[in-house]
């Protein structure tokens, strides 16, 4: 077959490729053994949206696809521009994967503290990776991208997942209807960790519009500024994402890194699913919610987001032996 250069018409034609089709429609699984482990009553259900089933291994496949589709439709990509963004990991993997599949050049700015596996994963997809100051975390990566784009604006399409409305749209159009349909409209509590805040904003917006009863929207953030929950932001001290609407969530719960790690370990040992620390944070928050509802004698259907899989964190303290 002839090699076809990535021009705009080619990119849209290739939009229907296999990787794109494999994104979304992830299973929602009821965690009956974890319900017992957390001491929930039979009337309190805990479900996990298993986003690691996506081809890039995380919920960020949805975000990246939505952002790229919007940019192609607007003509901001597909004419030789390089997609650039700051990413602590999963969004970068999703951009790199889709860039490879759709013939779009991708440059990622990643904190220098990223693991060797992470660096090799991005390189495997052919993305160009630039490292920012490891002591400045994800905010340092954002500042470096802004500087690179300001230096040569014509070269780049700045995807800007923290401020791009297509991030929210991904979850309004896919994740939201999926969790509502998969619970047969019984969903009462939706629990999502806050990084870009896109998941909670998008699913929240969908549920506010379509649910026939009030659904509690609970955001999860690290309890402290200095934490080890990958991809999450401590909103009081971080650059607050532009897409975040503080009026949408019913509340925001803080979870310590240790509690997030413990919940991820419980998921692995009690249910046999290995997930990452942000999933652990969601489950730790869901455990407290379910325990309070149990104490109150209430019925509930709690959905927690399983943001990514656990094998991505084998070199972190998440799976370190006790």
């Amino acid at each position: 077959m002839l090699h076809v250069p990535p021009q705009s018409s080619t990119v849209s034609a290739r939009n229907a490729n296999a990787v794109v089709q494999a994104i979304g429609h992830t299973p929602l699984l009821r965690l009956r053994q974890l319900e017992r482990h957390f001491g929930f009553a039979d009337t309190v259900e805990l479900h996990l949206k298993t986003e690691w089933v996506n081809p890039g291994g995380s919920i960020k496949d949805r975000t990246a696809l939505s952002i790229i589709r919007a940019a192609l439709a607007a003509g901001d990509l597909g004419h030789g521009q390089t997609l650039i963004d700051a990413t602590s990991g999963n969004t970068g993997i999703a951009y790199a994967m889709l860039g490879a599949a759709l013939g779009i050049p991708v440059t990622l700015v990643v904190p220098g503290s990223a693991s060797e596996e992470r660096k090799r994963t991005l390189a495997a997809y052919g993305a160009n990776v630039v490292f920012s100051d490891p002591y400045e975390g994800s905010d340092g990566a954002i500042r470096l991208v802004r500087q690179m784009v300001a230096d040569t604006p014509a070269q780049f399409y700045y995807a800007d997942q923290y401020n791009n409305p297509a991030n929210i749209a991904a979850h309004v159009t896919t994740t939201g209807p999926e969790v509502w349909g998969q619970t047969d409209g019984r969903l009462t509590h939706f629990v999502a960790a806050l990084g870009t805040t896109g998941t909670l904003m998008g699913v929240g917006r969908y549920l506010r519009e379509h649910a026939d009863h009030p659904v509690q929207l609970i955001g999860v953030q690290p309890a402290e500024a200095f934490h080890g929950i990958e991809g999450l932001k401590h909103l009081p001290t971080a650059i607050v994402p532009g897409i975040f609407d503080p009026m949408l969530p019913n509340r925001i719960d803080g979870v310590t890194t240790e509690d997030a790690f413990d919940a991820a370990r419980a998921l692995a040992r009690v249910e046999g699913f290995m997930a990452g620390s942000s999933t652990g944070a969601n489950l730790a928050a869901a455990a407290r919610i379910g325990q309070a509802l149990t104490a109150a004698g209430a019925s509930a259907t709690i959905v927690a987001v399983g943001c990514d899989g656990g094998s991505r964190y084998l070199t972190t303290g998440l799976w370190e032996a006790d």
Binding site: S88, P111, S113, A114
Partner: peptide
């Protein structure tokens, strides 16, 4: 450094 996905 907080141990974000391992790291050096």
């Amino acid at each position: 450094i907080p141990a974000m996905a391992g790291g050096t």
